[in-house]
Design a binder for these strands. Structure first.
Lengths: 188, 188
DNA sequence: CCGTTCGCTCAACACCTGTTGACCGAGCTG
DNA sequence: CAGCTCGGTCAACAGGTGTTGAGCGAACGG
């Protein structure tokens, strides 16, 4: 008997979490369209109808699964801007959070995910742009930085390009650092 | 009467081209999964069954539509490596070819498109890596360059990030140039 | 201990998809 | 001009999808 006696509410929270975890994993692996509610239900050991009953629709399940980004602690380190940027790659700690991967996976084919991605990236761009000198096209520079890092994440985590997959994280960071510095530093 | 009298073979080539064009456009806009054969047929003013009869299956239609990359002429200019890289962004000439966009659009959600993308990017990586000094992790540097440029393309052409959409092409190139130089140049 | 809540399942609907085979009629060939 | 070729359409099938409503049975509350 699995986890002998727990309250009804506990069981509910548990299965809800199981559904959410399976959904996140499948959405991250196959994207929104190719992830079927039936597959999510099976992965949680549950009837498809229950998934609907809990989350209302496939869309709401997706946004619920994606929103569960644990938001990394501010960490308060006196890091340089470039180091903060490299941290967003999630190179250490075994990759980006699965919810982020799920959103990235679907952002090119699902308009809702694309909107979500645009605002998330826009927020990052604004944050970086605010840290750049005003006379150096800060928004454009920030957008290029974010896009470049997005590309590295895509190539690494979603496409699995072999040179990136096989390289140690600190080598990637070391090679990227001067490039990001060049992008964020106005020509003298 | 549209284009009065043409041979049967001419008409055939014409409708085939019309189907291929519509397919490329729709695949580029919505990706593989969300593009329906019925929609392609409608866009070409034709019955869905004809699309199948011409291309055999949706997959073959996709690969046929994507393969039609006109392959930019070598141009033989004595460009620097960085300039060649910037050229691959298709910043001038109104964006990348639609077949390339179609492949990019689907590469995160369709395994076949992902394979296609991996070999295409792999080819680019090998080409760039061969031009880098052997003692400077050329493959990794090349992969980072290609990924970063991929990210900029995605952000610009597929996501439509406003700072990139609104910026003139030569500003993007100018800001990217030193960063690419830093990526392709081993530390002194 | 009994009635009610509620987590959960079953079976089905309505829809859309890729794909197929029969068929029509205009153009080609002899 | 007769017969075949073949570009093209029509109608349908089979499978998979999100979504729904009725219902069951165990845990809850009094």
């Amino acid at each position: 008997m699995p986890t002998p006696h727990q309250s009804r509410a506990d069981r509910r929270r548990a299965t809800e979490a199981r559904i959410l975890d399976g959904a996140r994993e499948l959405f991250a692996e196959r994207g929104f369209d190719r992830t079927t509610i039936r597959a999510v239900a099976t992965s949680a050991g549950v009837d498809p109808a229950l998934v609907m009953q809990y989350f209302g629709s496939k869309r709401e399940l997706f946004t619920a699964a994606v929103q569960a980004a644990p938001a990394p602690p501010p960490d308060a380190g006196p890091d340089t801007l470039v180091d903060q940027l490299l941290a967003t790659l999630g190179l250490k700690l075994g990759g980006l959070p699965e919810g982020t991967l799920a959103m990235m996976r679907s952002m090119l084919t699902d308009p809702a995910a694309a909107d979500h991605a645009r605002v998330a990236l826009g927020r990052q761009i604004d944050g970086i742009g605010a840290a750049l000198p005003e006379d150096a096209e800060p928004e454009l520079r920030a957008a290029l930085v974010v896009s470049a890092l997005l590309g590295v994440s895509v190539g690494h985590q979603l496409l699995g390009l072999s040179p990136l997959r096989e390289a140690p994280a600190d080598r990637i960071a070391a090679l990227l650092r001067p490039a990001l510095a060049a992008l964020t530093t106005p020509a003298p």
